[in-house]
């Protein structure tokens, strides 16, 4: 199935946005304003739905006219595109969106035609599936790990680099002992936060090079 690659699911949703001529500020503009205020780090709503690798929300105002001799044509509605890449199955992911990021989901999709609200997760899942587009071809460079595994591996990579750097040249018995402590600390370290911290410097940035 083209929506999936290994353990990764590529979901594409196209939701028509409500057109209401009576409003001073139309739904599309309100939606864009809201999206522009959303955090992108570990406080992002997608960090709560922690199986999300990468996600985007895009307003499609119209199709594109590429120039003559092609025909010029226009959409009659504007659409919200939701593109997300996550590990696991679709139903679980959508239900997590509704339960763990319901406020955000409502704030976004309330601008869309036929949106039933995140409160009723069955109706929400059915709505999203009505808006789903089948992916024709999906490419995932790494498709055999979860988000949690990947974040943990990045944490390990950085920690191990520091361990090796700090302990080079020490006697083998001492390194062995320290390595055991290192493994225990790594095992009990809190899981890395998806999305990172906006104010966080990387280990490399923190370490001036001589």
């Amino acid at each position: 199935m083209a929506n999936e690659s290994g353990q990764v699911y590529g979901l594409t949703i196209l939701s028509p946005i409500v057109e209401d001529q009576r409003l001073d500020i139309d739904h599309t503009t309100q939606l864009r304003w809201y999206l522009s205020t959303l955090p992108r780090d570990n406080t992002s709503p997608f960090a709560k739905v922690s199986s999300t690798y990468l996600a985007r929300l895009v307003v499609l105002d119209d199709v594109v006219f590429v120039g003559k001799p092609a025909c010029e044509e226009h959409l009659k509605s504007r659409y919200l595109i939701f593109e997300t890449n996550f590990d696991g199955d679709l139903d679980t992911y959508l239900r997590r969106m509704a339960s763990e990021a319901g406020e955000f989901v409502d704030a976004v999709w309330k601008h869309c035609v036929g949106y039933p609200g995140a409160g009723n997760s069955d109706a929400f899942v059915a709505y999203m599936k009505k808006c789903q587009l089948q992916t024709t071809f999906f490419f995932a460079d790494v498709n055999d790990r979860t988000v949690k595994d990947t974040l943990r591996a990045l944490q390990t990579q950085s920690a191990l680099t520091h361990f090796i750097e700090r302990n080079q040249g020490k006697p083998p018995a001492e390194i062995q002992k320290l390595f055991g402590v290192f493994l225990e600390r790594l095992k009990s370290a809190p899981a890395p936060l998806p999305g990172g911290r906006a104010d966080e410097k990387s280990a490399t940035e923190d370490r001036p090079h001589d």
């Binding site: 864009r32 997608f46 922690s50 690798y53 996600a55 990947t150 591996a153 990045l154 990579q157 999305g195």
Partner: peptide
């Protein structure tokens, strides 16, 4: 794009593969 989220914003594809 109006909103973009990345769970590992500081990691390139090669970083992810190397870390794994």
């Amino acid at each position: 794009t109006d909103y973009y989220y990345n769970c590992y914003p500081k990691a390139a594809t090669n970083d992810v593969k190397a870390a794994l």
